[in-house]
Design a protein around this nucleic acid. Structure first.
Lengths: 229, 229
DNA sequence: GCGGAGAATTGGTCTGACAATAAGATCAGC
DNA sequence: GCTGATCTTATTGTCAGACCAATTCTCCGC
């Protein structure tokens, strides 16, 4: 179980972050020239070394480009990113509502249009979760996999992004650590497994409205469990 | 026949290339510790600086990980598609569907429950966009602000995250830069301004279903414009 | 105005140094 | 012999200053 990684704030990572934001917000646009390394070092109140390391790293991402004797130029805006680490915790109810909105739509769409391959993948995800519960362990991977597989089956890559983000947001915030599945945890997991299977069955029988309802109840149940604990 | 640009081989790029190959060929596997920076510098016959720049760049790609006082560790093998995947965005239609799902729900909820302060903020966002169009400039900030203000007015912080992400995803991918608003751009922007105002009016009069429809038409219109250009 | 030579600027690299952290080694105590 | 704390060493992260090569700017002659 991954304990929250305590990261020491390295300067070059902070500089990378700031530069990315500056470019994404249009402060510097593609084609623009950045301040010189020495100027950036002064602005960030550091030496040239971490500034260069940040710039070189961004160059490998094709975001900036360094020309000897010329300067650093912006090539493209950094990709939009949903970074859980950058978010300092959202109200659980906000997460719930977002998950209900997105995942209900997802499961409804999957029920309407998924093919046999999707169903196979879903079945495997359900069984992996059941096996985990059976063995008495839970580290979330199989749970996340089910929701992500569902999102992928929708055929919409953006939905997959959102579902993964929301899962991390919800579960990273709360049970960072579920050790051994003590006491009340086990019945919960068994219920979750059953709910996953129910959703799968609804999808397999192409019952969109039943699938949607199953998802809504599942998410609300998980939310309640989180609040209780 | 395009002349191949003779690029001056920067040392850190050569080192990045060699390290990537070493890891890809299994010389160093995930979990392994790389030689120390000083050892690598000796091996490559260079100083520490370019070695560090290469390592830091690989760290941003999640290929290696540097621990203070510990050393550099391999996290995963660099897969060739990573760079491409980082660059290529999401299918525009996927983004559209996600935006319709989320933002229609947002605007509907705002129409139902927003207060006077929210309406003020929305009005200011609408007027800022109109002023931008009036001045003949468009750099997206005011557009983004409107959608984000709407999301914030919903009271759900996660919705704000999602809306911001989806906006960046859609607009970062296409018009990275709209300079001067040439030809067909201006009428478009005027239409967008009008649509924003229409949404605002619908919200202000608490007409949830009209607001939702206005949002859906707006997003689909934007999508069509993007495809046309 | 134009072209070209020289000066100033700027990225790329090197060297050496120091602090902070992590990991290994040592040692006292039982 | 084992445990736990302490000390030592190793390593990264950062700083400062310097030099080189490529680029860009400037200014001068024409």
């Amino acid at each position: 179980m991954p304990i929250t990684p305590v990261r020491s704030p390295k300067l070059y990572l902070l500089i990378v972050e700031q530069l990315k934001q500056l470019i994404q917000r249009g402060e510097y646009r593609p084609g623009d020239r950045l301040p010189t390394e020495r100027e950036l070092a002064q602005l960030f109140q550091v030496s040239r070394a971490p500034v260069r390391e940040a710039l070189v790293a961004l160059e490998l991402l094709d975001i900036v480009e360094g020309r000897v004797g010329g300067g650093w130029f912006v090539r493209r805006a950094p990709d939009a990113s949903l970074d859980v680490a950058a978010v300092q915790g959202r109200p659980p109810s906000d997460i719930l509502h977002a998950r209900v909105l997105v995942e209900c739509a997802v499961v409804e769409q999957v029920a309407r249009q998924c093919d046999e391959d999707d169903l196979d993948a879903l079945r495997r995800a359900v069984e992996a979760f059941e096996a985990e519960v059976e063995r008495g362990e839970y580290h979330g991977d199989a749970d996340r996999l089910f929701h992500l597989t569902l999102a992928r089956a929708s055929g919409n890559t953006v939905f997959a992004d959102l579902v993964g983000y929301l899962w991390d947001l919800q579960n990273g915030q709360f049970f960072q650590r579920v050790e051994g599945m003590s006491g009340t945890a086990r019945p919960r997991m068994e219920r979750y497994a059953a709910e996953h299977r129910a959703m799968f069955e609804a999808v397999a029988t192409r019952d969109a409205s039943r699938a949607r309802e199953a998802m809504r109840r599942h998410l609300e149940g998980v939310y309640q469990d989180l609040l209780d604990s």
